[in-house]
Amino acid sequence: MKRIEMKFGLKNLLVYALLVGGALVVAFPFFYAISTSLKASYDIFKIPMEWIPREIHWENYVVPFQTRPLGRNFLNSVLVSTAVTVLNVITCTMAGYSFAKFRYYGRDMMFLGVLATLMVPIQVILVPLFVLVKALGWLNSYAGLIIPAGTSAFGVFLMRQYFQTVPLEIMEAARIDGCGELRIFAQVVMPLVRPALSALVIFIFMNNWNSFLWPLLVVSRDEMMTLPLGIAAFESTYSTNFGQLMAVSLISTLPVLIAFLLLQRQFIQGMALSGLKS
């Protein structure tokens, strides 16, 4: 008995050792990024490099917000990413529900068509998409930033997988009780797929929060720019303040990280149930 306990102790120790080792490897670039974010511009490229800055420049975290409209950029990003996420939750759950739980002509073709859009490199469709958005009069507007991103093939796929785990009987029972389809969807089925929703929310929010190329094309006015565009303005032809760039970049990842922290258990649960039925 004692031997077994010891064995377990050793095993756990090994697990911890591996995890800590892995964590160190993962954390190393962050350590370097944080160290860089606290350096003066010219100290960053000093050879040999300083692991911990000789002089610490906390102002790198403050100055950018004073000299550039990053606050406004941040608000724009929050607004756009939230709106996109809400739209996706609506369109992807509805479509996923439809593809998983209904039978009608053309269903599988539509689903395949949706999946096929995943396989086209985004850069080339940017131009025709831009032409379309221009024709709709959405350049330099929130509509132009939000609506084209309002649904996602990956989201539809994810929700379809998850809805397949919901037993048909629940819907049938509700129908027999005389519930309308919309009510079944909103009040009977939706509560069952909450874990998958957190997976969807994180995925969509994250992608949109970091979205760069599309906002760059659609927006030409400073007051409409999102955070990634605001950060890109730090880079310049002949000189960049890397310390400030790092500082702002690190701050910009916080919202998504916090979202993950809050939703991670549901996120994993959501993935767990949807991923297994392929």
């Binding site: 369109t91 479509a95 529900y97 439809s98 209904f102 949706v114 859009t117 609506i147 649904t151």
Partner: peptide, 26 residues
């Protein structure tokens, strides 16, 4: 079946406009 189709419609329309059309144009 109609209900099912209508559930898919918003997403499908958006795909048609913002992915389908640009891909065909490509």
């Amino acid at each position: 079946a109609w209900a099912g189709f209508l559930f898919a419609l918003p997403a499908v329309l958006m795909f048609a406009a913002f992915s389908g059309y640009p891909i065909l144009r490509t």
